[in-house]
C-alpha cells in the first residue's frame, strides 16, 4: 500500500467521528421539535438553544473534517 492510498483510507476513517455528531444533532432536534409541539409559544427560545446545541454537536464533526482535510491536503 503506498502513501497516497493510506492517506485516503486515513481520511475516510477520520470522518467516522461524524457518526457521533449526527446522532447528537438528531436527538437534539427531536427533543426541540417535541418541545415546540407541546408549547408553540416557546418556539423562539427553544430554537435559539437548539441552534446553540447543534453548533456544539457539529463542532465535533468539524474537528473530524479538519483532521481529514489536513491528512489529505497537508504534507
Amino acid at each position: 500500500m503506498d502513501a497516497a492510498a493510506a492517506k485516503l483510507i486515513g481520511a475516510g476513517i477520520a470522518m467516522l467521528g461524524t457518526i457521533g455528531a449526527g446522532l447528537g444533532i438528531g436527538i437534539l432536534v427531536s427533543g426541540a421539535v417535541q418541545g415546540i409541539a407541546r408549547n408553540p409559544d416557546a418556539s423562539g427560545d427553544v430554537q435559539t438553544n437548539m441552534i446553540l446545541g447543534i453548533a456544539f454537536a457539529e463542532a465535533v464533526a468539524i474537528y473530524c473534517l479538519v483532521v481529514a482535510l489536513l491528512i489529505l491536503f497537508v504534507g
Binding site: 453548533a55 456544539f56 457539529e58 463542532a59 468539524i62 474537528y63 473534517l65 479538519v66 482535510l69
Partner: peptide
C-alpha cells in the same frame, strides 16, 4: 479551538 476550527472547517470544506 472550537470557535476557530468551526468557522475554518465549515468554510474551507465549502470551498473544497
Amino acid at each position: 479551538l472550537s470557535f476557530s476550527f468551526r468557522l475554518f472547517g465549515n468554510i474551507f470544506a465549502g470551498t473544497v
